[in-house]
Design a protein around this nucleic acid. Structure first.
Lengths: 208, 208
DNA sequence: AACCTACAGTAACATTTATCACACAAGGCC
DNA sequence: GGCCTTGTGTGATAAATGTTACTGTAGGTT
């Protein structure tokens, strides 16, 4: 257990890791679980030790706009920001690959900032990297057209899963980009003609 | 001076305010000044004591997409995040109304986090509120059409300046929404027909 | 085999946004 | 006044995206 955390969070000090083990609880969730809903009060800071989570922004009309992935060694910045004042979540988090997460009670968040240098640095770095990721999202929707956004989406997916096959339906992709299934089908067909992908049922193979 | 800072940052402790005065330097900049460019290394954390700043995300093609305003009592979250590791700025900051800003050397940022509870809370709250503001920006461009975004833009402008007259050309608005001047002219015309605004040269009057 | 459901392809059309072209008006300057 | 620059209005058209409608197909179920 010591080794597990130490491997996944190599920058944490030994004392911090002991403290985390004393105060946190390791929980497992299956793919598909909604870990956090928009508007829910947040009671824990979440560290990911295994699996993958997708973070979404929800629209009033029920849209689920994909913001970014969370992977082992990372933490949910929103949960850190909100725990500080026990605010409502502004995002929705869905498990996409069975996860283990370390739940840290909100009181610890503040306390450790003062007591553990490595926790402090981890939190600041989490803020920074998530903020930059959201800025990249803004870039994409503000400056790029749907075909570029789709390419970016597919690339990010394959980076996250570490393989070149995207096992998602056109409808699922459309939902996460807040567009319609037909648009995605058309653009994928064009990408296939350009030799960028190979299309199969429920699977898109990235060729480049 | 003590009173100035105490009024603008009412939650800062007296000791923190003294420390800020010892270590920071108050600087003035005229409207139009670019305070920070994309890609520049950041050397200071910036607290705004007077005036207004707009924060933009720049596109590769030279677009200037408005993210949000900074006003007295607020701080640039990006400058805090980046100073921590002396990273490059991911945004551009432009003065829109003559400002006075308190420049805090980057070493102080970390130091005060440990020493001053009120600084720590201010920083966390700054992260939280700016993060939420960016999420709202994502909402707008991901889920809303240009007419809604224009209305939001005008409302935010009038909130920021505290008046109902928007003294901007259609071209300036178009640039900040990353669209074209003609689109803005047309949408404004429709808003005028709906009785939402009154159009004059270089000035848009909000009626509701 | 017959049936059902989810997924994918695609044509036709509507709407939104972008681009091009040009007219005109307000205000500064000579 | 005549000239210029900047800002605004607007039509025509193109391109991107959204919507509707329908077809077919793969794979599972009965």
């Amino acid at each position: 257990m010591q080794n597990l955390l130490k491997n996944i969070f190599p920058n944490f000090s030994s004392e911090l890791i002991s403290t985390i083990e004393e105060n946190g609880s390791l929980q497992d969730f299956e793919a598909g679980t909604i870990l956090m809903r928009t508007g829910q009060y947040i009671k824990n800071t979440v560290l990911i030790t295994k699996g993958k989570i997708k973070i979404y922004r929800e629209g009033e009309d029920g849209g689920e706009f994909l913001m970014y992935y969370l992977q082992p060694g990372q933490a949910c910045a929103i949960s850190m920001i909100c725990t500080a004042k026990s605010e409502k979540s502004q995002i929705m988090a869905k498990v996409v690959e069975d996860v283990s997460v370390m739940m840290i009670p909100l009181q610890m968040m503040d306390k450790w900032m003062m007591e553990h240098r490595s926790w402090y640095e981890f939190v600041i770095e989490t803020y920074r990297s998530r903020f930059e990721e959201v800025l990249e999202v803004v870039d994409n929707i503000a400056f790029r057209s749907m075909d570029e956004r789709l390419e970016f989406y597919l690339k990010r997916h394959s980076d996250a899963c570490g393989c070149s096959e995207v096992k998602l339906s056109h409808q699922e992709i459309a939902t996460e980009l807040n567009t319609s299934r037909e648009v995605i089908s058309r653009l994928l067909k064009k990408m296939e003609q350009r030799g960028l992908v190979k299309l199969n049922r429920n699977q898109i193979e990235l060729l480049k």
